[in-house]
């Protein structure tokens, strides 16, 4: 299974993850921080999709009720269930954070962290 992880997918995941984390930590603009956050979440979702992928398999619905079930024909449904839930969690986090950003902008008239901090003093 882990030869897989050296594939382009895994490299993409790591690149996106590090990019997102760096943007989140180093940028002062609140929206850019959120973009970084979204990149991190997306990269993890991408990782989950990658470990669940199986070439040549079909959707996990029984082809026929008769006869023994052949597991290797079907894709593993569980990572996909995880991904859907993780997307929902990510979207709600983004919703709350955008709400907070709007409230901050209305109150302080800026989205730059240093300017807001200046206005606080």
């Amino acid at each position: 299974m882990f030869e897989n992880l050296l594939s382009p997918n895994f490299t993409t995941f790591i690149t996106l993850f590090i990019f997102g984390l760096t943007i989140m930590v180093t940028h002062h603009n609140l929206i850019k921080k959120l973009i970084g956050m979204y990149l991190v979440q997306t990269s993890i979702i991408f990782f989950l999709v990658t470990i669940g992928a199986k070439s040549g398999s079909t959707v996990p619905i029984l082809l026929s009720a008769a006869g023994p079930i052949e597991p290797h024909v079907y894709a593993n449904p569980l990572p996909h269930a995880l991904v859907v839930t993780a997307i929902v969690v990510g979207v709600s986090t983004l919703g709350v954070s955008l709400g907070l950003t709007i409230a901050i902008f209305r109150r302080y008239g800026s989205l730059e962290e240093d300017e807001i901090l200046k206005r606080l003093e």
Partner: peptide
């Protein structure tokens, strides 16, 4: 907002 950023990194 800061709590959210760090909390999301944790999650």
């Amino acid at each position: 907002f800061r709590y959210l950023i760090l909390g999301t990194i944790g999650a």
